[in-house]
């Protein structure tokens, strides 16, 4: 199994306060890796390191992140973000039509051919299972979609630049159970094409959909391994306590 991302001795600090401490792990290709941990443990900071967003904040970063063999610090920010997409907790469609949401990034990268754009829109909306629901109203404002549809649109939009890795920062925390289940099914389908890293508060979700799980606590990687092992037989007492709800 190849690794999409290799993280070596990654540490991050803000104003001399360590947010991540010496994290090393390898994220396998075409798998879903869940990052779990209590609030404020550094999960979101970890995601920001993977798409380079951390470099725009007043943070001190050390260590190395490699994407398919390339040190991401050597990549231009726009190139890195094309390769590593990010979807946020609250669905944030742009205030324009569904179609324009989907062509926003491709047009930025110089794709202006109408047929090609149409093909991209159709393909990515189909991938996220949204096409059949919106195919007759692509000109409708994206902000009028339901919460679950908005989040699937945001995932589809992130896919329009053909990333290798898709990062999701608690993508279902603002959604109802039904929409959450649709997104989970979608992620299981998407892992055939993309490598997925999902930060989630929902341990059930991590257990249901992820292949690998990383447990971060207080900025440290406590345990990383196959999801089945982590949930059924964690090696560390701290992991066991978190999973059984003793803290977090």
């Amino acid at each position: 199994m190849n690794n999409a991302l290799t993280i070596e001795k990654l540490s991050v600090s803000y104003d001399n306060k360590e947010a991540l401490k010496d994290i090393s792990l390898k994220i396998p290709e075409h798998r879903i890796t869940a990052v779990i941990g209590p609030s404020g443990c550094g999960k979101s900071t970890f995601l920001k390191c993977l798409n380079g967003q951390i470099m725009e904040e007043n943070a001190r970063v050390s260590g190395k992140v490699t994407l398919s063999g390339t040190d991401i610090s050597k990549l231009k920010p726009s190139d890195l973000r094309r390769k590593v997409g990010l979807v946020f907790q609250t669905p944030a469609p742009f205030p324009m039509s569904i179609y324009k949401n989907m062509t926003y990034a491709p047009r930025y990268y110089g794709i202006n051919d109408r047929e090609e754009l149409k093909r991209t829109v159709t393909e990515k909306l189909k991938l996220t299972g949204l096409y059949d629901e919106v195919k007759d109203e692509l000109k409708k404002s994206a902000v009028k979609l339901s919460g679950g549809q908005k989040q699937r649109l945001c995932i589809a939009r992130a896919l329009t630049v053909d990333p290798e890795v898709l990062l999701l920062d608690e993508p279902c925390s603002a959604l109802d159970i039904k929409s959450t289940s649709v997104i989970e099914e979608l992620l299981l389908r998407l892992k055939e094409t993309y490598t997925i890293v999902i930060v989630t508060h929902n341990l059930g979700q991590a257990a249901r959909i992820s292949d690998m799980t990383a447990f971060i606590n207080d900025g440290r990687l406590v345990e990383f391994g196959e999801t089945g092992s982590i949930f059924k037989a964690p090696e560390m007492e701290e992991t066991k306590d978190f999973i059984t709800g003793s803290f977090g």
Partner: peptide
């Protein structure tokens, strides 16, 4: 304007 909308544009690599 929503901060997450702006960050979503950043996350797509757009200037």
């Amino acid at each position: 304007l929503s901060e997450e909308m702006i960050r979503s544009s950043d996350a797509l690599g757009c200037s």
